[in-house]
C-alpha cells in the first residue's frame, strides 16, 4: 500500500497528465459524431444568448444589404408561388415538404474541418435534429442538435456531411462532399466517366436522401477532372456563400417517417 502511494507521489505529474489527457480524449472521441451531445444543450443556450447579443450589435451595420437581400428574396418567393400554383393543378402525389421555419444565423464558421452554423430557432419553435436547412441561394446543411431556443446546424462545410446531389441537366447523381480546404468549393463524387458534364452545369439536390427536397441548388460545376479512373472528380463552386449567410429556412419532410418505415419493411422481407 505504501509503495503504491509512494509511486503515485513520485509520478504525480505524469499520472495527472495522463488522467487529464484521457478525460479530454474520451470527451473528444465520444462527441465526434456530427450529432452533438446533450450536455451541450445548456452551453448552446447560453452561448446562443451571448452570440445573439453580439450579433445584434453587428446587425445595424448590415441593414442596407439585408434589405436588398430581403426584397430579392420576396421577388423570388412570389415567382415561386405562381409556379407552385400552376404545378399544384396537375400534381398531388409528390413527397411533401410543408413545415418551413424561418431562422436567422447568429454564429457561423467556415475555417474548420467540421463547421457549424448556430441559428436562433430551437425545440420551442418545432425544430428537430436531422431537419434540412436551406437559404434562398441553396442548401446550407442539416440540424445537428437542438436546444430550447437555438439549434446547431452542421453545414455542407462539414466533412461528416454528405449530400445526395445530381446534375440538373441529365440526372446523374452522386454524393456531394467538402474536402475541408476552400470554403467556396466542394466535390461531387460517383459520377460515371461517360456522363456528359462540363464547367457551368448546375448541381441540385437529388431528393433521394429524404432530408432535402428535390432540386434545391447546391452549386455550379467549376472544373471536371477525368483522370481518376471510372469516376469523374467534379469541383463545384458552392451556391451559398457561407460568409454572408443570414436568413435560413428549416424544412421538415413530412413523408419521411412513412417512407423510411416502408424501406425498413422492404429490407426485412
Amino acid at each position: 500500500m505504501n509503495a503504491i502511494i509512494r509511486f503515485i507521489i513520485k509520478h504525480q505529474f505524469v499520472l495527472l497528465f495522463l488522467l487529464l489527457e484521457i478525460i479530454a480524449l474520451v470527451l473528444f472521441v465520444q462527441n465526434n459524431g456530427y450529432q452533438k451531445i446533450k450536455y451541450q444543450a445548456f452551453a448552446q443556450d447560453f452561448d446562443g444568448y451571448l452570440m445573439h447579443k453580439r450579433h445584434r450589435i453587428g446587425q445595424y451595420f448590415g441593414l442596407k444589404e439585408v434589405n436588398n437581400k430581403l426584397s430579392a428574396e420576396n421577388l423570388m418567393l412570389r415567382r415561386q408561388i405562381e409556379m407552385l400554383k400552376a404545378e399544384k393543378a396537375n400534381k398531388d402525389t409528390a413527397v411533401n415538404f410543408t413545415s418551413y421555419i424561418g431562422a436567422r444565423v447568429i454564429d457561423n464558421s467556415v475555417n474548420k474541418p467540421y463547421n457549424y452554423v448556430l441559428v436562433d430557432k430551437g425545440a420551442k419553435d418545432g425544430v428537430k435534429p436531422e431537419m434540412a436547412v436551406i437559404s434562398n441561394q441553396g442548401v446550407v446543411g442539416l440540424v445537428a442538435s437542438v436546444s430550447k431556443n437555438y439549434s446547431l446546424v452542421a453545414s455542407v462545410l462539414n466533412r461528416k456531411i454528405k449530400v445526395s446531389a445530381k446534375i440538373k441537366k441529365n440526372g446523374y447523381f452522386g454524393s456531394f462532399e467538402w474536402d475541408g480546404l476552400n470554403y467556396r468549393y466542394a466535390y461531387l463524387h460517383d459520377i460515371p466517366y461517360h456522363a456528359e458534364v462540363k464547367a457551368g452545369d448546375t448541381i441540385v439536390t437529388s431528393g433521394y436522401s429524404l432530408i432535402f427536397p428535390e432540386n434545391i441548388p447546391v452549386g455550379v460545376i467549376d472544373e471536371v477532372d477525368s483522370t481518376g479512373g471510372n469516376f469523374l472528380n467534379i469541383r463545384t463552386k458552392l451556391s451559398v456563400d457561407y460568409k454572408k449567410l443570414d436568413f435560413v429556412y428549416i424544412i421538415e419532410n413530412n413523408s419521411r417517417a412513412e417512407i423510411e418505415g416502408l424501406q425498413k419493411k422492404g429490407s426485412n422481407d
Binding site: 505529474f13 497528465f17 487529464l20 489527457e21 478525460i23 479530454a24 480524449l25 474520451v26 470527451l27 473528444f28 472521441v29 465520444q30 462527441n31 452533438k36 451531445i37 450536455y39 451541450q40 452551453a43 448552446q44 452561448d47 457549424y116 446547431l152
Partner: peptide, 20 residues
C-alpha cells in the same frame, strides 16, 4: 474554450499537452 466552441475535449487535450 471547448464548451463554448462546441468542440468537447479538443482544446482541453491540446492545452493539457502544451502545459505538460
Amino acid at each position: 474554450i471547448d464548451i463554448f466552441s462546441f468542440t468537447p475535449g479538443l482544446h482541453a487535450a491540446a492545452c493539457t499537452f502544451a502545459a505538460a
